[in-house]
Computed example of a mutant assay.
Amino acid sequence: MQRHTPLCGAEFAPGTTYLNTASAGLLPRRSADALRAAVEESASYGTMGRDYFGPAAASRAAFARLVDIPEERVAIGSSVAVQSAFVAASLPPDCEVLVPEGDFSSLVNPLWERRVRTVPLEALAEEVRPQTALVAFSAVQSANGRIADLEAVREAARAHGARTYLDATQAAGWLPLRAADYDYFVCGAFKWLLCPRGTTFMTFGADGGPEGKDWPAPRHAGWVAGEDLGESVYGPVLRPAATARRFDEPHAHFSYVGAERSLALIGELGVAAIHAHNTALADRYRAGLAERGLTPSPAPGSAIVSTPGLADAAARLAGAGVRVSARNGMLRAAFHLYNSTDDVDRLLELIGRGGG
């Protein structure tokens, strides 16, 4: 089998065999350097730095390019759960929300105040009904790496007049996606996009019309969401921004200082190249598991591989310097741009040596 080296070795030198990006990504060297400089700066200029809005604006633009949507339709925030609560608040009180069984709680839990119906992921498209107001789902499932049938769900939702809300937290950065295909598209960027925690993006696929009048009300917006920041500091924000900036949260400055550099790295490498690299490593791992008589949970084409019966091995592997995770009784390995075939082979050797 073809051997693969890391896509950007100069940016990473982990002290572990790190195969746990599905939990959190590694911070590139350029991002860590920028964060250290920002912390030093804060000792003289405060925790908003000398340029509070610059890194956030650059991050917004970089994310927009990665997911192929105009930056005017991108809002920045802190967590997927906050964005899900915003989406829930924009829905009619007794409407039906359709979600896959076992999807990530940050996406699903805030929607639970509506009438939520859960179905198996593979049945999601066929279960959309005329009364369904919203279909909310992850592009890639956290627990097992399964990739949703994105086109089928989009078509079914469109046919029944339902809105779509896609969580790309486990996908953006390695799986090619087009955010404009969804009414709402959210991404916690601290995993595959290698940003600091506290970096989240929300996009709006539909045109907001004149001054965003066709978008939902910005219920959680603060002073940063005003069209004129100088006039939106006190009292109600009477003129929300005409762009999706009207949905911004006051952002964590350090998080976006790092995000600017991390997103630039992803853009330089290209999602297509990262996808090819990650999936080749995952396929090598699946083949090695099969040679050892082990069968991972079905997730064709995914960079995440979860294997039943091996969850107890996670602690032993951590002791050997291999970082993976245990989810739903399975050992979950995730392969990203800083991984190599040597990482895959080391994991397989340790699994074969110690079993579960």
Rank of each mutant, 00 (worst) to 15 (best):
R3D: 12
R3M: 12
T5A: 15
A13N: 14
P14R: 11
T21R: 07
G25W: 10
G25Q: 08
L26Y: 05
P28W: 04
R29F: 10
L35Y: 07
G46L: 11
P70R: 07
E71R: 03
E71C: 06
V74S: 03
G77E: 02
S79F: 09
V82D: 12
A85P: 02
A85W: 08
L91D: 07
L91P: 03
P93L: 05
C95E: 00
F104K: 12
L107K: 03
R115I: 00
R117S: 08
V119M: 10
V119W: 04
E127L: 05
P130R: 10
Q131D: 15
T132W: 00
L134P: 02
A136D: 02
A136M: 01
Q141A: 12
D149G: 04
A152H: 06
R158I: 08
Q170N: 14
G173N: 10
L175C: 04
P176G: 03
L177M: 08
D181C: 06
D181F: 01
F185V: 07
F190H: 14
L194T: 11
P196N: 07
T199K: 05
F201W: 02
G205R: 00
A206D: 12
G209A: 05
E211Q: 15
G212T: 05
K213N: 13
V224K: 06
L229M: 15
S232H: 10
R239Q: 13
A241E: 13
R261D: 08
S262N: 08
A276H: 10
A276V: 06
N278Y: 07
R284W: 00
R286K: 10
R286V: 10
R286M: 02
A287S: 13
A290S: 10
A290G: 02
S297C: 14
G309N: 10
G309P: 09
A314D: 13
L317K: 04
S325H: 02
A326F: 04
N328Y: 11
N328C: 13
M330K: 14
A333I: 03
H336V: 04
Y338K: 05
D342V: 11
D342A: 15
D345P: 02
E349M: 05
G354S: 13
